[in-house]
Design a binder for these strands. Structure first.
Length: 574
RNA sequence: GCGCGAGUAGUCUAGUGGUAGGACAACGGCUUUCCAAGCCGUUAGCCCGGGUUCGAAUCCCGGCUCGCGCACCA
C-alpha cells in the first residue's frame, strides 16, 4: 500500500515516518493521488514547531507582521503578477480532429495578432475572425491549460479564479493597507504562512514536489537605494558555503561575500545569514546546507537576484528556501493593472531647495492668436524645458506652432522639495515548509548502539520535538501508573506536549520514544514513593538524573529550551 | 505526459494457476525492580476495475500509486 516509502536510501526514514505517524500518502484508501501528503500527528506537530520558530525569527524579531489572505485568487491578480501568462496557456481543442493548440501561438501564426492570454480575449478573436482548425473543424470553447489550479467563483459559469501558486501576491495586493499600517515608513516586512498550489505535471519524490504545499513567505519592503539592514553586523562574520552563479564555491563570511560582490547587497546577505541561522536552529545540519545563486537563465520572471538555501538529502541537494530580490516588479505590475498608486512618499532628510524656471503663458494674447488651439499651446508651453529664443517652435500632435517671446513670461522661483514618491523594492525570503520538515527528519535520523543493541533515534532539536516528554511508570501497575498519570496531567497543564505510556517493558518504551525523537523520558520508580523524586532520561545519551517531582515544570522548561543540560539539573542516576 | 520496473496485514517480506505463510509492531494476559527478554492468546493483508479460466496474489488489459530515466519544475 505505501510503496511511497520504498526504494532509495530514504527507505528506513520513510518507513518510520509512515509507521509512527509523521507523514503518509494522501487518499490512501482510494488508491492515492500523486502530489499530496497528509501530516500525521507527529508530522503536524513538527511542522507547527517549525512555523513557530519561523515566526520568532522572521516576524517577532523584525519590523514585520503576519497576515492571512484567501488561498483562492481572482484572475486579475494573476494577470497582473504575470502568472497568467508565464504560468498559464490558453488552449483550444478542435471538435473534429481533437487536436489541441496553444491559442496565442495559433492565432499569431494564422492572423499575426498578438493575443492576451485570457479566455475571453481568445474567444473573441476566434469568433470575430472565424478561426478554424487546420483540418477545417470548429474549435471548442477555449480553456486554460496551466499549472495553476483553476476554479470558478460563484454559480453558473462564475468568475474565473485560481488557487494561489504562492502566498506572496496576497501581500502585494494589500500594499496600500499595509503601508498605512506601518505609517508609510520603510522598511517593513509582511509575511504569510499558508498553503499554495501548483498543478505539477508529474509530482515525484514524496514530499519534495507537491501539488499542495506549505509556504512561509516574508516580503520585506525597502527603499530601492537602501538595501541594508541595521542588524547586518549580527551576520557579518557568519561563515557560510556559497555556490555562485558560475558554480564556484566559496567558504566565506557574509561580510566578505558582499564586499567582493558575490552577494549583490547587504540586505540579501542579511537574510541569507538569518536563514542559515534559522535552519541550523531548526535542525538542518551545517555540513548539509549551502546557498546557491540562481544562474541568469534560471531566475523567475520577477527576480533581480536570487539565492536558494539547499539541503543535502537522499534526493541530492534540494531547494528549501528561495531568497529573491524581486525589485519593484510586483508592485509596479499591480500599480499598472489596478491603477492604484502603490508607491510611498519618502521625505528627504532636509527639503531640497531648487531654482525652477517657470513659463507663464499670457492667455490674453494667446487666446486671440491661436483661438481653439490656445489651450493646447499653453499646456505645451508650461512643459517646455528647452532653450528660450525670440520665437519658440512647439510641435503639438504633429502640428507646428510658433510662439513669440512676448506671449509668455518667465519667472525664476525657489521650490522646496520635501521628498519623492518611491515604489519600494522587495526582498523575499520564501520557505518551503514541507521540504524543510522533511530535511530535518532525514538529518535527524540516526542509529547507534546501546548495550550492544542497535537502536534508531531521531535526534530532533529539543524545541522542535512534537512529543516533548514521555512519562513512564517503571511497572505497568499501580501505584506506578497512577503517579505517572498525575505527573502527566501536571506537565500538560504547564504547556508541555506530554504522553504517558505504560505499555510494554521500560526498555521497549524508551526505544519507542527514541525513534520518534522525544528528547526526555520521565520515569516513576520505587524511589518515587519514598522521596517524591523521578528520573529524567536524555534521549541522546540515555543518561538519567533524579529530580524532585515538584520541580519538574521549571526543570523541563530550561531543558527543552536548551538553557540547561541534563547534568545541571539533578543528581546522576545512571 | 513518454519508456522501463514494482505494488501481499501497521511495517518488512514468502508465495509462477488449486482458496495466503512468516518476522517485527500493536492489543490482552502471565512474567518482569531501568534500556527492543520470555511464554500464551488476539487483531490484521493479495492497490482498484475488467478479462481469460472450473479455479487468479499469480496470466492479459485498463486505471491509480511508488521507484528510475526523459520531459516539466513559472
Amino acid at each position: 500500500m505505501s510503496g511511497y516509502v520504498k526504494g532509495g536510501t530514504m527507505k528506513d526514514v520513510g518507513e518510520m515516518l509512515v509507521r509512527r505517524g509523521y507523514l503518509w500518502q494522501s487518499f490512501e484508501i482510494y488508491g492515492g493521488m500523486a502530489g499530496f501528503v497528509d501530516y500525521g500527528p507527529l508530522g503536524n506537530g513538527l511542522r507547527r514547531a517549525l512555523e513557530n520558530l519561523w515566526r520568532e525569527y522572521f516576524v517577532v524579531n523584525e519590523r514585520a507582521v503576519e497576515i492571512d489572505t484567501p488561498t483562492i485568487g481572482i484572475e486579475d491578480v494573476f494577470i497582473a503578477s504575470g502568472h497568467a501568462s508565464s504560468f498559464t496557456d490558453v488552449a483550444v481543442e478542435c471538435k473534429k480532429c481533437g487536436k489541441i493548440f496553444r491559442a496565442d501561438h495559433y492565432i499569431k501564426e494564422k492572423l499575426g495578432i498578438e493575443t492576451e492570454e485570457t479566455i475571453d480575449f481568445v474567444r473573441e478573436v476566434i469568433t470575430t475572425y472565424d478561426v478554424k482548425c487546420e483540418c477545417g473543424g470548429n474549435f471548442k470553447e477555449p480553456e486554460n491549460f496551466n499549472l495553476m489550479f483553476s476554479t470558478t467563483i460563484g454559480p453558473g459559469r462564475g468568475k474565473q479564479g485560481y488557487l494561489r501558486p504562492e502566498t506572496a501576491q496576497g501581500i502585494f495586493i494589500n500594499f496600500k493597507r499595509l503601508s498605512d499600517y506601518f505609517r508609510d515608513k520603510l522598511p517593513f516586512g509582511v509575511c504569510q504562512i499558508g498553503r499554495a498550489y501548483r498543478n505539477e505535471i508529474s509530482p515525484r519524490q514524496g514530499v519534495i514536489r507537491l501539488r499542495e504545499f506549505n509556504q512561509a513567505e516574508l516580503e520585506y519592503f525597502v527603499h530601492p537605494g537602501e538595501k541594508k539592514h541595521p542588524l547586518f553586523d549580527n551576520y557579518r562574520e557568519f561563515r557560510i558555503l556559497l555556490v555562485d552563479k558560475n558554480d564556484e564555491e566559496h567558504d566565506i563570511t557574509l561580510g566578505e561575500a558582499v564586499e567582493r560582490g558575490i552577494i549583490a547587497h547587504e540586505l540579501l546577505a542579511y537574510f541569507i545569514g538569518k536563514t542559515a541561522d534559522f535552519l541550523l536552529k531548526a535542525g538542518i545540519k551545517k555540513d548539509k546546507m549551502r546557498f546557491r545563486q540562481h544562474k541568469d537563465d534560471e531566475r523567475a520572471h520577477y527576480a533581480v537576484d536570487c539565492w536558494d538555501a539547499e539541503a543535502y538529502t537522499s534526493y541530492g541537494w534540494i531547494e528549501i528556501v528561495g531568497i529573491a530580490d524581486r525589485g519593484d516588479y510586483d508592485l509596479s505590475k499591480h500599480r499598472e493593472y489596478s491603477k492604484e498608486d502603490l508607491s510611498i512618499f519618502i521625505n528627504y532628510d532636509e527639503p531640497v531647495v531648487r531654482k525652477v524656471r517657470k513659463i507663464l503663458p499670457d492667455m490674453s494674447k494667446l487666446g486671440p492668436k491661436f483661438r481653439k488651439n490656445a489651450k493646447k499651446v499653453a499646456e505645451a508651453l508650461e512643459k517646455y524645458s528647452g532653450e528660450i529664443d525670440d520665437v519658440l517652435t512647439l510641435e503639438i500632435d504633429g502640428e507646428k506652432f510658433e510662439v513669440d517671446r512676448d506671449l509668455f513670461e518667465i519667472v525664476e522661483e525657489e521650490e522646496k522639495v520635501y521628498g519623492e514618491r518611491v515604489v519600494p523594492h522587495v526582498i523575499e525570503p520564501s520557505f518551503g515548509l514541507d521540504r524543510i520538515t522533511y530535511a530535518i527528519l532525514e538529518h535527524s535520523f540516526d542509529r547507534d548502539v546501546i548495550d550492544g543493541e542497535e537502536r534508531r533515534v531521531l535526534r530532533l532539536k529539543r524545541w522542535m520535538a512534537p512529543v516533548q516528554i514521555a512519562v513512564l511508570p517503571l511497572l505497568s501497575r499501580e501505584p506506578f501508573t497512577g503517579k505517572a498519570e498525575e505527573i502527566t496531567v501536571m506537565l500538560k497543564k504547564s504547556g508541555f506536549f506530554t504522553e504517558k505510556d505504560e505499555s510494554g517493558s521500560i526498555g521497549r518504551r524508551y526505544r519507542r520514544y527514541d525513534e520518534i525523537g522525544t528528547p526526555f523520558c520521565i520515569t516513576v520508580d520505587h524511589q518515587s514513593f519514598e522521596d517524591s523524586t523521578v528520573t529524567i532520561r536524555d534521549r541522546d545519551t540515555t543518561r538519567q538524573v533524579r529530580v524532585k517531582e515538584l520541580e519538574l515544570p521549571e526543570i523541563m522548561k530550561s531543558l527543552l529550551s536548551g538553557e540547561r543540560e541534563l547534568t545541571e539539573v539533578g543528581e546522576l542516576f545512571k
